[in-house]
Nucleic acid binder design. Structure first.
Lengths: 114, 114
DNA sequence: AGCAACACATACTTTTTAGTATGTAGCATA
DNA sequence: TATGCTACATACTAAAAAGTATGTGTTGCT
């Protein structure tokens, strides 16, 4: 499987495939979820909220989400710098689904403990 | 981050984190989706439905889903062998959400083309 | 002059995930 | 005897993702 033309059309056009590529990263779901709850978060706030994510991965993941237009990055030209992240329109549309999956996950976790 | 005890509690208990681990693989979403539509599929049928997945990855992914109790594997002791896959109760609960994300993905794909 | 504040960047290494190629079982049919 | 059918297994390699450690810029404060 070398180039795009060799991949069957049905695969390229699959919404599930496409969606999972955009939100399937290790941390993307959680970042989107927190932005969905808090509306606006600064870089440092996100970092403290998700302490297991290294700054490298946090920055990288935020960039990907920005390029994919799921989040909006607003920077203030101040010193020390200030950057705020929030969901875009498209990102907002994902919140109901992330909520669904969150409920499901909580339920599963609860069952595991029993 | 070496062992579980070093990971903050809030992270371990996060339903979003947990859910993405279960269904976040490269192919898991699509496999679940197809099983959701077709109810029951044999190994070969799945393989033909998802031709870009190698047999190694298909088998491996199906095993993971089975261990996670999202799908059910039913084997018939015949020659040549016959194995049927279907969603479990828990797996079924994911269908509305996969449907949601499928709609979202289709919409995004449509926008991209314009 | 030195340090803190904040949001990163970068080089390098390790780990994880996926791909390639080939092999297996057991029976039926040519 | 050879081949096909089906659902895999396994060894090895390559690629992708993540982790570690360290560095950067600007300004105000001490």
């Amino acid at each position: 499987m070398k180039n795009k033309s060799e991949i069957p059309e049905c695969v390229q056009k699959c919404g599930v495939e496409y969606a999972f590529k955009r939100i399937g990263g290790k941390y993307k779901g959680r970042i989107l979820w927190h932005l969905g709850m808090q509306k606006v978060l600064r870089y440092g706030e996100l970092s403290r909220t998700l302490p297991d994510i290294t700054t490298k991965m946090l920055t990288q993941t935020l960039r990907e989400l920005e390029v994919d237009q799921l989040i909006i990055r607003k920077m203030y030209h101040e010193v020390p710098p200030k950057v705020e992240y929030s969901l875009s329109e498209t990102g907002l549309e994902l919140i109901p689904f992330i909520d669904h999956i969150h409920q499901w996950g909580k339920k599963q976790l609860a069952n595991e403990i029993l």
